[in-house]
């Protein structure tokens, strides 16, 4: 049994070199598909990251009537926190607000002995869905004790729009990519199998079991899948870092608004995902194509 295992392994490796044309075609197909997949994943990761960063900055600030008691403020905070669209609600006391503001003023803040923002305690409300900002504001307007509501300048519609576009584009790209890769791979495997049909036939005539016939092909497919996915991952890694540097140095003005995800954080997901997809394509591609030829 161990003998057979190593023989199968050896045949799988030999097949990779024996059928150079088939190997090259399959490698190119898998690599190309996973390359596009990788680009798409990197873009989606970054767009999501950027949208999220911007979204997280979006907050609604609520100021209170002068005569309002701390008890009422706590009550309002409680009510707001309970709302589904609210992600977090922080209470900022007047002292904290002043501390924050004086940091911005720097030296100019030194002359004050009393807190000039005595009436500035507020609730800082963060949303888990920016599109719900209007709804929240509508609600806050009905709450008693509130003096002023500051909305985020960045309109909710812009972000919702960006997100929707990214979602549609990603779904579209996934669909296109799937269709293209399935078409290319089934084509390559079909061409490759015409060479192997004879070999499979001979094996069956000599009395090889289905497992014995299939194992080297499946193993070969997995090797090609592994190499075919490793190539684009490595290339993309260098490309990503280059693009990262390029954007940072040539579009420096964007750096204040946008932060990109470092390569390591993208590739910790992208690399294993690509390898699994590559090996999976190799495995199932050869498994099912050989199966068609087993009933001899």
């Amino acid at each position: 049994m161990i003998n057979t295992f190593f023989y199968t392994l050896g045949q799988g490796v030999k097949n990779v070199f024996r059928n150079k044309w088939f190997t090259m075609a399959s490698l190119a197909t898998i690599s190309a598909c996973l390359f596009v997949f990788g680009i798409f994943v990197a873009v989606v990761f970054n767009v999501n990251h950027i949208v999220k960063t911007v979204e997280e900055g979006v907050s609604v600030t609520v100021y209170f009537n002068e005569d309002v008691e701390q008890e009422r403020i706590d009550q309002i905070r409680e009510l707001v926190t309970r709302r589904p669209e609210v992600y977090r609600c922080d209470f900022i006391s007047a002292d904290e607000a002043w501390a924050e503001f004086s940091k911005k003023l720097g030296e100019n803040a030194e002359g004050f002995t009393e807190n000039p923002l005595a009436n500035s305690e507020n609730l800082q409300i963060y949303l888990n869905d920016v599109s719900k900002q209007g709804e929240l504001v509508g609600y806050l307007e009905t709450v008693e004790g509130i003096r002023k509501i500051n909305k985020s300048e960045l309109t909710a519609n812009t972000l919702t729009g960006v997100k929707a576009v990214v979602t549609y584009v990603s779904v579209g790209m996934i669909a296109l990519l799937l269709a293209v890769s399935i078409f290319l791979i089934s084509n390559t495997v079909t061409i490759g199998i015409s060479v192997r049909k004879e070999e499979i036939n001979i094996m069956k005539y000599v009395g090889a079991t289905d497992f014995f016939v299939r194992a080297p092909f499946v193993f070969e497919g997995m090797i090609i899948g592994l190499i075919g996915s490793a190539i684009p991952v490595v290339v993309l890694y260098y490309l990503y870092n280059a693009a990262f540097e390029f954007l940072r140095s040539n579009f420096a003005f964007l750096n204040d608004y946008i932060s990109y995800i470092p390569a390591s954080e993208v590739f910790i997901y992208l690399a294993p995902a690509s390898l699994i997809i590559g090996v999976g394509i190799g495995f199932f591609g050869s498994f099912f194509t050989v199966r068609k030829h087993l009933h001899v």
Binding site: E198, N201, I202, K204, Y205, V206, G207, A208, T209, D210, F212
Partner: peptide, 15 residues
Amino acid sequence: AKFRRTLGVVFQDFR
């Protein structure tokens, strides 16, 4: 598969 191991086959085109 097991059955065929009790047979030997040759063809015109050698295979």
